[in-house]
């Protein structure tokens, strides 16, 4: 496992993204094609951008590891915990004890699809998308378009994308997993 530190400055996003991507290409050269490389860059840019929004002056750590042909990109920080405003509630982590596991929440969406989260317990959430193969785009569809893409982008670019809040330390962990090869 290799750790990288993000200084939470906008100017650092792209250089660090390239640095980490180069590292991954070195450790898994034969498993990284153009598509995977794009997915890695995209996930890193959005993870780092997410930190800029919520970091609260704390540093952000990116951990990269490779196990059984699975690439793990983990972002750890002690900024503001995840908050999701659903249609009915504002969910703040950690969720109240007793939150039913396996509950599903709609994070945001539009006519092209919805970003959803599956609660594993009061501290863990796994993101997934439900997509719609829309055939016709009209003005109404465009007016209803979502304008928040960060978590959606990471979810679609990942094979697994999950969030965990660590109550003991107040740390936020976002983990993206990409299956490399077969």
């Amino acid at each position: 496992m290799k750790k990288f530190i993000f200084n939470n400055e906008t100017e650092g996003i792209y250089p660090l993204t390239l640095q980490i991507t180069d590292y991954i290409k070195n450790i898994a050269k034969h498993l990284i094609d153009d598509d995977v490389s794009f997915r890695i860059r995209t996930i890193l840019i959005e993870l780092l951008t997410n930190s800029l929004k919520h970091h609260n002056d704390h540093v952000t750590q990116i951990e990269v590891s490779l196990k059984n042909n699975k690439l793990y990109l983990k972002k750890l920080d002690k900024g503001n915990p995840l908050q999701i405003k659903t249609t009915h509630d504002l969910l703040k982590w950690p969720l109240p004890a007793g939150t039913p596991a396996k509950s599903e929440i709609a994070v945001y969406g539009d006519d092209f699809g919805t970003l959803k989260g599956r609660l594993k317990n009061s501290n863990k959430l796994e993101f997934y998308t439900e997509d719609v193969n829309l055939q016709y785009v009209d003005r109404e569809v465009i007016n209803g378009l979502n304008e928040h893409y960060g978590l959606m982008i990471i979810t679609r670019a990942s094979d697994v994308f999950k969030y965990e809040y660590k109550p003991g330390t107040g740390a936020n962990n976002f983990t993206s997993i990409i299956q490399l090869g077969n």
Partner: peptide, 21 residues
């Protein structure tokens, strides 16, 4: 432009809505 992030995409979508209207 080398890359755009989600914020930039959101701005672009917002502008498209405004344009259509």
């Amino acid at each position: 432009v080398i890359y755009v992030d989600s914020s930039f995409l959101g701005a672009l979508v917002s502008a498209l809505k405004h344009a259509m209207n």
